[in-house]
């Protein structure tokens, strides 16, 4: 249990820079999730913290220790892998005891701690089984118990739930989160699953192309995405290309004028709109922006309805509204949409 500081972390393979200047400061007990599309450098970052990859530049500190040049076996990081990585030739108890054996814990204490760790993941009494005799979810819990038994300074989770089916994933998700909180364990998890990230994280780090795009709580990332990438990756957004022509005025490439908040700078820009911040039909009346469009596509998602409304040659706005209540629009309907100027997020550049 310790604070984890990553500073100026860089990893290059030849000319390719996989991780480029990542800086993270994770306070003791925080659950941090690294989120991003595949190839964004999140796994490489995690593996550098674990010690499997040597950074090209930068430092990693766990608590007071600079571990940048330490091999993995001297870092005291608990690791959980996507494919569980249990030792198939050892029983569950032997798997969990392995790390304690390496630390020369005496056999009596070892047995006690193995027992504790297994009960923590609700697998008390499974010690004599072999991994192959257990289900995927159970195996992943054994892997977690094995990582926790060594009382690691930092817990590292590498897409730990990807191999589990959807229902199990939700269970294990909650279980990991509760354990992490109860133990006050500093944790980094890597995932490409947005929902998983949002349900588990204290703070999220969105990465792409080796860079940290934004760090923040779920609310910060959702309400104030730092750039179009984050706006599109966390939740959904419709993007409209155009330019800010004057303070508070945005003109789309199709010539539609839209009011925006006043602090955005002039120049080419794109406007991002969250689907649930856009109102339809009568509800749009009296809002800052009212635009006429045509329903192009309606998609039923159970509780909500996604309505894709075309408002210009290049521009389509996705609006989501509760399924029940007003009659459902049909493709081809004329439709008025509207939104408050505070709902529009403007990003300069293209």
């Amino acid at each position: 249990m310790a604070r984890l500081q990553i500073n100026g972390l860089v990893k290059k393979y030849g000319d390719a820079t996989v991780v480029d200047g990542v800086k993270l400061d994770i306070p003791d007990g925080e659950f941090l999730v690294l989120l991003g599309p595949s190839g964004c450098g999140k796994t490489t970052t995690l593996r550098m913290v674990a010690g499997f990859i040597t950074p090209t530049a930068g430092t990693i500190r766990i608590g007071e220790r600079d571990v940048t040049n330490l091999p993995p076996w001297k870092r005291n990081c608990g690791l959980v892998f996507q494919n569980y990585a249990l030792f198939p030739h050892m029983t569950v108890a032997e798997n969990v005891a392995f790390g304690l054996e390496m630390r020369k814990v005496d056999p009596a204490t070892r047995a006690k701690r193995v027992d504790e760790a297994l009960r923590m993941v609700r697998l008390g009494g499974f010690g004599e089984r072999y991994p192959r005799q257990m289900s995927g979810g159970q195996q992943q819990r054994v892997a977690l118990a094995r990582a926790l038994a060594i009382q690691p300074d930092v817990l590292l989770l590498d897409e730990p739930l990807s191999n589990l089916d959807a229902k199990l994933r939700q269970e294990v998700r909650v279980e990991i989160r509760e354990l992490q909180r109860a133990l006050g364990l500093t944790t980094i998890m890597v995932t490409h699953d947005q929902e998983e990230a949002l349900t588990m994280a204290d703070r999220l780090v969105v990465m792409s192309e080796g860079h940290v795009r934004q760090i923040g709580t779920k609310r910060e990332l959702y309400d104030h995405p730092a750039d179009p990438f984050v706006a599109g990756f966390i939740g959904r957004s419709s993007f409209i290309a155009g330019r800010v022509t004057a303070r508070g005025t945005f003109v789309t490439d199709n010539g539609v004028t839209i009011q925006i908040a006043e602090h955005f700078a002039e120049g080419p820009a794109s406007l991002a709109l969250r689907p649930e911040r856009v109102a339809l039909g009568d509800a749009a009346k009296g809002l800052d922006n009212i635009v006429e469009g045509k329903v192009e596509f309606v998609s039923y998602l159970g509780a909500v309805l996604d309505i894709h409304v075309r408002i210009g040659d290049h521009d389509r706005v996705i609006v989501s509204r509760p399924t029940h209540g007003a009659p459902e629009p049909v493709e081809g309907d004329a439709m008025t949409i509207g939104w408050a100027k505070s709902a529009g997020l403007v990003y300069s550049g293209t």
């Binding site: 010690g51 993995p72 005291n76 990081c77 392995f98 094995r146």
Partner: peptide, 11 residues
């Protein structure tokens, strides 16, 4: 990753 698991556990 089985080897890596062993490394991370202190072997």
């Amino acid at each position: 990753s089985v080897e890596e698991a062993a490394f991370s556990l202190g072997a």
